[in-house]
């Protein structure tokens, strides 16, 4: 009988003859990866080349750093860059701790059926399309018939506010809808980490007379700290990738001061105004910052927790 896992140095020819079917399976997926992942990656050279309509996706001639020089002088870019940073940092500060708190509290619910019910319902917003989320938002916040304005007017006598159009509410609305959509979902990871804690710890603490609040502070939270660290690092790595579709859907000319982020800038200059090379350069610039953030946060994770994400 032969063993599948043998790591012999059998000749390549024999190896392929034995496993040729496994290689055949990979053919289509590998072609897919080359065409749809790696060619667009190479397509980023467009940031250094001039594009001419109808002349292929890689542009026509080298122009060096022309477009990058233009980016750094472009006030619209710096505004988008600042908006991206402010929005994602705000999002991180608010929406990083909330799922942890939710998971810890949900874990304390002793009625199992109720716990399961809350969990199921809390996942629901994650499955809703961004379009539907923004559409619902538009109705809830509508100045004429919206629920919130009705409430504010009838209780506090406040004049109806056009929330979706006022720049000062944009970030709050963006962040809170993210809270609404992803709290339950993100909490799954923390709940799994809490479930992994040995019950003996809680029982011992309970015998020693620790209250449940004390158990949360001294057992639950310290035990999930490694998970929290990994998630934090993951989130820092993703700092520049905001929910582009939601921002695009919430974008109005009057809130553009705060709602124009890097991705919407790429979309506007690239697809709407067809400045392909310039938009590619903007995209590439934020992509490179993204890679630096991910790799350095991963290195940091390895140093602190002894474990990276990849």
């Amino acid at each position: 009988m032969f063993k599948l896992t043998e790591q012999t140095n059998e000749p390549l020819k024999r190896h392929i003859k034995k496993y040729w079917q496994l290689y055949v399976m990979m053919i289509l997926p590998i072609i897919y990866f080359i065409v749809f992942k790696y060619i667009p990656m190479l397509g980023n050279v467009l940031a250094f080349r001039k594009y001419q309509p109808g002349m292929g996706p890689f542009g026509t001639r080298w122009v060096g750093f022309t477009y990058f020089k233009r980016i750094f002088k472009d006030s619209a870019f710096w505004r988008a860059f600042k908006n991206t940073l402010v929005l994602s940092l705000g999002n991180l500060i608010i929406n990083f701790p909330i799922p942890i708190i939710f998971a810890v509290l949900l874990n304390e619910v002793k009625a199992l059926k109720f716990k399961k019910f809350v969990q199921t319902i809390s996942y629901m917003p994650r499955f809703i399309s961004t379009v539907a989320v923004v559409a619902i938002l538009g109705e809830l916040l509508s100045p004429s018939t919206g629920m919130l304005n009705n409430f504010l007017t009838s209780i506090f006598g406040i004049e109806p506010i056009y929330f979706m159009n006022e720049p000062q509410y944009f970030r709050t609305i963006y962040i809170l809808t993210d809270t609404w959509q992803f709290t339950g979902w993100t909490a799954i990871i923390y709940l799994a980490a809490i479930t992994g804690i040995s019950i003996d710890l809680f029982e011992a603490a309970s015998i020693d007379g620790a209250s449940r609040v004390q158990q949360i502070i001294h057992i639950t939270i310290p035990s999930i700290l490694p998970t929290v660290m990994v998630m934090l690092i993951l989130n820092v790595g993703r700092l520049l990738s905001l929910g582009f579709e939601k921002v695009l859907l919430m974008y109005t000319p009057s809130n553009s001061v705060v709602s124009d982020i890097i991705d919407t800038l790429v979309y506007r200059t690239g697809l709407a105004n067809q400045n392909y090379s310039y938009a590619t350069a903007v995209g590439l610039f934020s992509g490179i910052i993204g890679v630096i953030l991910v790799t350095s946060s991963n290195a940091l994770s390895k140093k602190i927790t002894g474990d990276g994400i990849y």
Partner: peptide
């Protein structure tokens, strides 16, 4: 390919 991807424009042109 998870960490570095072609952006919106290269994909669109592809």
């Amino acid at each position: 390919s998870m960490f570095f991807s072609g952006g919106l424009i290269p994909n669109y042109l592809l």
